[in-house]
Design a protein around this nucleic acid. Structure first.
Lengths: 197, 197
DNA sequence: TGTACATCAGTGAACGCGCGTTCACTGATGTAC
DNA sequence: TGTACATCAGTGAACGCGCGTTCACTGATGTAC
């Protein structure tokens, strides 16, 4: 019966991430409270700290899952594309991004809610996950601008992502803008379509 | 000596906003603490609440000033423009926006740090100020697309602003991207320059 | 101008709350023989 | 397989901190006459 302890440990870890994920999906980062999590997981408050260094680690774990879901969502949309016009690919990806943000607003927001107070860096796997996402964008971009240097492609990738991100961000900021979804899609399309000309 | 009370009241209001502005400029919204403000203003903690409903009102007042400075900064840059190519105007405005955000990062961030917890709306004057800023962008846009409806112009205005905002936002997010300023400017230029073609 | 009273700004200690994290203790699991 | 001991996960009450806001009191300013 080797590793009954380790088994329980993994089990608790998974359960806590599950609960954290559900809570973030329901109400965002501020729903992550040690006592609530423990209560829902059926463990003591202190037990959380046996498994995670602090609550921020737990949030990061949830963000990891969100990243994966986001990547899958975008990839799935691209896979359905008819034809292979790379500009169209970018548009599809952007719309998928918008769609994901709309369907998963609190989880999506939490991705960018990194702990800034401590100066410690964002964990390595986090940046790697982000990089993976960006590389999905880079692919069609390379086809649109075959003569561009790798560095400029990376730059443009970030630029495009940031633009679309900005539109989505302010678009979802109901208090300020209140632009309907179809209009948001139109904006994104407009900007991307003109880009390659 | 009519209004000695009112005079002191105004004086305290101004002083508190001054201090709040300086503190936000120095370290962002989390530097706004009742006790600290009172101490620096030489008044009692409670006195703040004679003048402002709560600390959020004070922050909004500071944001009002930041908006004005931002508007002035952008306008000043445009005034220096040689020639009157509207696409160039947009680029100049965007670069000025980036520059302002870089020079005033905490104050600029605070503009978007609105109190979300309460469902109450953003004050009217706040939205009006934002609108004013957007209308600066709308002007050259109307010249670029004279045949566009007013509604589409507004849409595109928001879209462009959001794009540039997104680039600036992620660009200043050192932990994630670390793109040098000149590259950021290049990105913005690239996107805008292609837009009108 | 002077006096009596009313008002309300100014005071700062105290309230109240939320919440992350710790820590001394306990008991289940693992190990040695 | 059985026993004795060691380890470390699990416990949850308590610590500690930060901080916005209130409130009973005081004293300066304004008003009425």
């Amino acid at each position: 019966m080797a590793g009954k302890v380790e088994q329980k440990r993994k089990e608790l870890t998974r359960r806590l991430i599950d609960i954290g994920e559900a809570r973030i999906a329901a109400g965002g980062i501020e729903q992550i409270k040690a006592r609530d999590l423990a209560k829902e997981a059926g463990c003591a408050t202190g037990a959380i700290y046996n498994v995670f260094g602090d609550l921020n680690d737990l949030i990061m774990a949830v963000n990891g899952r969100t990243f994966i879901r986001l990547g899958a969502h975008v990839t799935a949309a691209v896979d359905k594309q008819k034809g292979d016009d790379p500009v169209e690919t970018l548009i599809i990806m952007s719309h998928a991004y918008l769609n994901f943000a709309q369907q998963n607003t609190p989880a999506w927001r939490t991705l960018f809610d990194l702990e800034m107070s401590t100066d410690q860096n964002v964990p390595q796997w986090y940046l790697a996950e982000l990089e993976k996402l960006l590389s999905i964008i880079a692919t069609p971009l390379t086809r649109i601008f075959p003569e561009m240097t790798r560095e400029d492609i990376m730059l443009m990738t970030r630029g495009l992502f940031s633009s679309v991100h900005g539109i989505v961000l302010l678009g979802l900021e109901k208090r300020i803008s209140a632009v309907p979804t179809t209009k948001l899609e139109k904006m994104i399309t407009l900007i991307l379509r003109n880009l390659a000309k």
